[in-house]
């Protein structure tokens, strides 16, 4: 049995032993190397070395597989959160649009629905962050607060 230490340039370090020509890896890949493999930042040579280990070590392979699943779920959650945020921000706009569309189908309530659409549209306009900032800029400007106005405007521009 030949025992030797295998080092690579980026710390892929594991103690391996050779018995009948079959390498048995004793120490698994580090957290950093595994994350770099998942992140796809390793060079092709390093990737090959990591894949060689993964093809034999079920523990590391399971880790990569689990991390991939968690990150995938996490990104799906982010998309859902973004969608929820968008719906929350545009709640009144959607309501206004629906009221406008229904006003054509429910002719008995045409004016009521049209008024509701207009009110909800106005609510959406005045509720949006841009409008709120513009109102604050206008108020600061009216008061003659030059510094405040400039600060608000710079915040508005950098957003």
């Amino acid at each position: 049995m030949v025992r030797k230490l295998v080092y690579s340039s980026r710390g892929v370090k594991h103690l391996s032993s050779e018995k009948k020509g079959v390498k048995v890896h004793r120490i698994c890949l580090s957290e950093e190397v595994l994350s770099e493999y998942i992140g796809g930042v390793l060079s092709s040579k390093e990737r090959d070395s990591v894949e060689e280990h993964l093809s034999r070590c079920s523990r590391c392979r399971k880790m990569v597989s689990d991390v991939h699943t968690v990150l995938k779920k996490s990104s799906a959650g982010k998309i859902r959160a973004k969608l929820r945020g968008w719906l929350k921000r545009n709640f009144w706009l959607i309501g206004s649009f629906l009221a406008f569309v229904f006003s054509f189908f429910l002719s008995g309530y045409f004016f009521q629905l049209l008024t509701a659409a207009a009110l909800m549209g106005a609510k959406w306009v005045f509720d949006s962050r841009t409008s709120k900032t513009l109102i604050m800029v206008y108020e600061a400007w009216k008061k003659g607060d030059k510094e405040g106005t400039e600060e608000l405007l710079s915040r508005f521009k950098t957003r």
């Binding site: 994350s35 998942i38 992140g39 991390v67 990150l71």
Partner: peptide, 9 residues
């Protein structure tokens, strides 16, 4: 770019 994977590991 590896931070999320590293945190999960």
């Amino acid at each position: 770019s590896c931070l999320e994977g590293w945190i999960a590991i």
